[in-house]
Design a protein around this nucleic acid. Structure first.
Lengths: 103, 103
DNA sequence: GCTTATCATAAGTCATGGTTTATGATTATG
DNA sequence: CATAATCATAAACCATGACTTATGATAAGC
């Protein structure tokens, strides 16, 4: 499967990025996240769904609650994609500088 | 100035990311970009405005046309922010794994 | 078993933003 | 000087998605 920018699109929303950062700080339940954030519980669940589909987090049922952790698989995919895009951009910029020097 | 996710939000849109990648490939004028992309010229100009405000690209007037290049300053800022976020996420994940092993 | 707590989904609302057409400004071309 | 080419901005349209309330499903506690 080709990485399809899902991670970057998931982290573009401020609230969802906050959710991600809170989970990165430590694993948390939905209720725990809702208590900190200025949005309703369903809103949190929906953000978690997007993050989960982007494979940035994963859920771990614990009794009646769902503990969300970081998902190293998706993080790795996103990291690889970012590094690739980054390399391409820097390579292109380097070529550009070289070309202007040739003149 | 604190980096404010502008770069990530700018690259979240597929069309705008395509614009960025085309410019990364080589500097291009607005017309040049419009010929390749499936959107109108004003749409391209507006995407360029967002990318420019995020300091991912910069404009260089050349006669009646505007040549857009990558902007290393903004790219550097975004890189630094991504590295920081990435480091935090990985550190947190490492702590999590260590904690589960202690038990 | 009944209530409480936690969570996800459905349905509906509303703002954001990506798109279009229209237009004016600037520069090259003839 | 007049026309064509390039670009940015304004205004209007509309789809997407972030949010809400309502509700059902599952698990814990009494």
């Amino acid at each position: 499967m080709v990485y399809d920018y899902a991670g970057m699109m998931a982290l573009a929303d401020p609230t969802r990025r906050k959710v991600f950062e809170l989970i990165a700080d430590r694993p948390r339940s939905v209720i725990d996240l809702t208590r900190v954030l200025p949005v309703s519980q369903p809103a949190v669940s929906q953000h978690l769904k997007v993050l989960k589909e982007a494979r940035l987090v994963r859920a771990e049922p614990k009794g009646a609650s769902n503990i969300y952790h970081l998902d190293p698989h998706g993080l790795g995919e996103m990291r690889a994609w970012l590094d690739r895009m980054w390399g391409d951009a820097l390579d292109a910029f380097k070529r550009e500088v070289d070309n202007s020097k040739e003149k």
